[in-house]
Amino acid sequence: MAETAADATASTPGQDPNRRDFIYIAAVAAAAGGAAAVAWPFIDQMNPAADTLAAASVEYDLSKVEPGAQVVITWRKQPLFIRNRTAAQIASAVKDDHADMKDPATDASRVKPGHAQWLILLGSCTHLGCVPTEGGGKYGGWLCPCHGSVYDTAGRIRSGPAPKNLELPEYTFLTDTKVKIG
């Protein structure tokens, strides 16, 4: 059979081996570098597109939420819970501030100062992402229908498989009754 790759690249007499190797190595390195550079656009195209990233903030008028009630709005294509907590619900959450919890947090850290009645959470169970049901579970917070995670009235995980408290989105109060989320 004809020459093999090994024969062809074997050193030739009278040839500076360093220079020959350099050219092969440079060509292979350039090819590898080029391939890596080409790969990036093909990976990055799967990241959120500019229009997805831009549609990020939402404003909401809280006066539409009755005391003790919860509304669910859509934010970044996910459910967002806005709960107007009663004094009793706040008290029961504050009472448990130092109870034994998986993800310890005080009730005050879950709301904005001076707006303790407003609890704004991402409606996505921290276990595997189902939407927890309002008022379920023995703490009067939420119960996840998928695998039974129980959250209290501050959205903290109290029992079940979920590892973390319900996530708080970034939001600010524009006025006492108006919030901007995101």
Binding site: P41, F42, D44, Q45, M46, N47, A49, A50, D51, T52
Partner: peptide
């Protein structure tokens, strides 16, 4: 094909690729 839409949105989805998708114009 990951970004293209068949149907009434086809033309706009191509422009979505050209304008919004990361490196979509290049691809």
């Amino acid at each position: 094909a990951m970004h293209y839409q068949v149907g009434p949105g086809a033309f706009a989805s191509v422009e979505h690729i050209m304008r919004d998708v990361n490196y979509g114009w290049m691809i």
